[in-house]
Design a protein around this nucleic acid. Structure first.
Length: 269
DNA sequence: AACAAGACCTGTAAGC
DNA sequence: TGCTTACAGGTCTTGT
């Protein structure tokens, strides 16, 4: 489901809605996710204060006074606020809930179980975090950086920009969109990408991510904000899931790294 | 070291 | 109306 804009949207919503910053209890409903939910988490987070909630790549991080909760939404993970009164109503794919001192409850639901949750004392050394590339909206992610990563590599440029160890946050939708905006074919080998193209691509990635954040992310089918509202960026997609390019030609759809890759044979070279 | 393919899951929609 | 197949905002693991 979620790429950077969707995760950013969720994090912002949690920060807006949280009043109490103390966890009353953590309940595991169904521990089966990408990694089994550790049975230690409930006692590790009980009565702990939430100091900060932020995003790193596609990860949601709760900084507690004794460590960190690390959440990934996978493809279909959804976090929503529920009332105490609904706390016992179990949805089919509910996995855990975090109850706060003010009786607000955050519930995690995940149809496909590709999401995850970990507790760690040291976030920087965590195996899901330590090898991540820079944030795409940071100054560190620029054309020189990308050109350097492209050097001598045979992978398709689309695969490279979706590699979280190169740059975080870019998933299938925004990779397609950014490449379209940059007039670069998704299957172009990295080693043939010029510095100018890297510059265009970096600018396009930053542009499309920022634009989508403003629209509350993209909802293809599952993505929902805490209040159940979808994201509205889908209407603005120019190539992903489109049939006809604005130049009038039929949009191509090829598989790259097992993922659908939409592009225009005429506009992208 | 780099890359491709396989694996993990469930729900939905299209095709026969 | 069924049954089968393909596909979906991800990414770790395994194999070449």
């Amino acid at each position: 489901m979620p790429e950077l804009p969707e995760v950013e949207t969720v994090v912002k919503a949690i920060n807006r809605s949280l009043e109490s910053m103390t966890i009353k209890r953590f309940i595991i409903i169904n521990s089966k996710l990408r990694w089994d939910i550790s049975s230690n988490i409930p006692k590790l987070v009980k009565n702990r204060k939430i100091e900060n909630i932020y995003r790193r790549g596609k990860h949601i991080i709760f900084k507690l006074d004794n460590g960190y909760i690390l959440i990934h939404l996978g493809m279909t993970g959804i976090i929503k606020f529920i009332d105490t009164i609904d706390a016992k109503n179990r949805g089919k794919h509910d996995h855990y809930q975090i109850e706060l001192k003010d009786n607000k409850i955050l519930k995690y639901n995940d149809v496909r179980k590709f999401g995850s949750i970990h507790w760690t004392e040291n976030i920087h050394d965590h195996f899901l975090i330590q090898n991540l590339g820079p944030e795409p909206l940071s100054k560190e992610f620029d054309s020189i950086f990308l050109k350097d990563k492209c050097r001598n590599r045979n992978v398709a440029i689309k695969n490279l920009i979706m590699n979280q160890n190169i740059v975080v946050g870019v998933g299938n939708i925004y990779a397609c969109e950014a490449l379209y905006m940059s007039s670069i074919r998704p299957d172009k080998k990295c080693k043939y990408i010029t510095l100018k193209q890297c510059d265009d691509l970096v600018k396009s990635i930053k542009f499309v991510l920022k634009k989508s954040i403003k629209s509350g992310g993209t909802t293809l089918k599952d993505f929902k904000n805490l209040d159940g509202a979808p994201g509205y960026f889908k209407q603005k997609l120019m190539i992903y899931d489109c049939k006809i390019c604005k130049c009038g030609v039929e949009v191509k759809n090829i598989k790259l790294g097992g993922r659908s890759s939409f592009y225009c044979n005429v506009c992208q070279k």
